[in-house]
């Protein structure tokens, strides 16, 4: 079986989350391996969020902002 990574993305409301919306509006296509948590700014990122994500077995964490 092919490895299907599960990636948790933390996206900034003003840029990366907006960009992910635009990707949809433009009907771009990308692999469905990420799950998104919206935050108001990547300044909100607390190190414990990343630790927690790996603890619950995320294969990768993406912080976009």
């Amino acid at each position: 079986m092919q490895f299907e990574p599960r990636i948790l993305s933390f996206l900034c409301n003003w840029c990366c989350y907006a960009a992910a919306d635009s990707a949809g509006v433009a009907r771009f296509s990308y692999p469905p391996n990420n799950r998104v948590i919206r935050i108001m700014c990547t300044g909100r990122m607390d190190p414990q969020f990343v630790v927690e994500a790996f603890y619950v077995r995320a294969d990768g964490v993406f912080v976009g902002g």
């Binding site: 992910a20 919306d21 990707a23 949809g24 509006v25 009907r27 771009f28 296509s29 469905p32």
Partner: peptide, 12 residues
């Protein structure tokens, strides 16, 4: 968000 970041980008 199951449209902009889901159905629209994973239509295939």
């Amino acid at each position: 968000n199951i449209r902009d970041q889901c159905s629209w980008v994973h239509a295939d």
